[in-house]
Design a binder for these strands. Structure first.
Length: 356
DNA sequence: AACACGGGGGC
DNA sequence: GCCCCAGTGTT
């Protein structure tokens, strides 16, 4: 019998009575578990749930997803963030179709070779769908184990990753690893929360060294985060019947999403003449006479590693032309709504445009 | 080993 | 308005 038998029993009893009813937990196929895990990486359940339902609806099987157009997949993903997840998910579906005959591999080590599937997602699918005894280590598990073991090792250090993965493996319930893993994560989400955890009702309170030492509020320990750089985006918004947009194809944030013709500057640009000059240089912009120049709109958009100070330079030209080698094209609002994925910064701007 | 990659919620 | 959350891939 496992030395953690009583802990396992208490945890599973708590899970049985307190877990949330979520669609991917009923009749879970590997495809649906995979879909939910990809969507829920770095994403709260509340935010990811509507996306999960949309993807199951639009792409009921891995074949549907594999055969779908990437731009439409990105459009369905719009707003979730970390768009490489959508690209890797799409590619993964194609690999599963082409190389695995439409069936997900059953072991964590095989799963981890697929695009977008790392150690966490591989363990989640293998344990939940195929009962492989492999421990998941997500942010919840890091926190639960750090408190349980009263460990000061930073969870985002190399040593921490190794240590907490080892500890999570020792804690794993070999009888039902899939449910155990889900219970650990659910405990972190509902009870052992980052702030104001509910220790008095925690099923593991009697086993928790952090609680015994009154150190729950100090755990887990984390190393300092890097600084955020500031970038200045100058967007040219051509307000005619259509809008001029472009797909972002450089190696940069929001890869493959769409925004407006853009000149990035080191400093904030404050006047129209400088903006027009910059666009003439970069895009070979040809602006007719009698162009109506409107007041610029300023928006600040904060990402995890950068702060984007965006200025929307709005103009209403009689005629306008961009150089032939740019990938700028015209689309109306309806097209953008239906077909072209845009960052939230752009979506919000367009929404305000509509409201006025 | 360090960095890049979004967006939303809590206080 | 600021702080926090956090898997995977790339360099």
């Amino acid at each position: 019998m496992s030395p953690h038998y009583q802990l396992h029993t208490d945890l599973l009893n708590w899970y049985r009575h307190n877990h949330r009813e979520l669609p991917w937990r009923e009749n879970s196929s590997p495809y649906r578990v995979w879909l939910s895990e990809i969507i829920l990486q770095q994403t709260r359940v509340d935010q990811g749930l509507p996306y999960y339902l949309k993807f199951v609806d639009h792409y009921p099987t891995v074949r549907h997803l594999a055969e779908a157009d990437l731009d439409l997949v990105l459009k369905d993903w719009q707003g979730l963030g970390y768009y490489s997840r959508a690209r890797n998910m799409h590619q993964c579906a194609q690999v599963v179709m082409d190389q695995f005959n439409g069936e997900f591999p059953k072991s964590a080590s095989e799963l981890a070779k697929l695009p977008g599937i790392g150690p966490y997602t591989a363990s989640a699918i293998a344990s939940i769908c195929f009962q492989e005894p492999t421990a998941v280590v997500d942010g919840n598990v890091f926190r639960v184990v750090a408190r349980l073991t009263n460990s000061n090792i930073p969870i985002n250090s190399t040593e921490g990753k190794r240590y907490f993965a080892t500890e999570a493996h020792h804690l794993l319930n070999p009888v039902d690893p899939g449910t155990h893993n889900q219970a650990m994560m659910e405990l972190g989400a509902l009870v052992c929360t980052p702030r104001n955890p509910s220790c008095p009702v925690c099923p593991l309170r009697l086993y928790c060294d952090g609680l015994k030492n009154n150190r729950v509020d100090e755990l887990p320990v984390k190393m300092g985060k890097s600084v955020r750089r500031t970038r200045y985006f100058n967007y040219l918004v051509v307000q005619t019947d259509c809008l001029f947009i472009r797909q972002r194809l450089d190696r940069d944030v929001w890869f493959m999403l769409h925004d407006f013709p853009l000149v990035e500057t080191e400093e904030k640009v404050n006047n129209w003449s400088e903006v027009i000059s910059l666009f003439q240089t970069k895009y070979d912009l040809d602006l007719g006479n009698d162009t109506n120049l409107l007041d610029p709109v300023h928006e600040k958009h904060i990402l995890s590693h950068q702060t984007i100070q965006a200025t929307f330079w709005r103009l209403q030209p009689k005629s306008i032309r961009f150089g032939a080698d740019s990938n700028i094209f015209e689309a109306d609002l309806e097209d953008i709504e239906e077909r072209y994925a845009v960052p939230i910064l752009i979506k919000n701007y367009l929404s305000n445009l509509n409201a006025k």
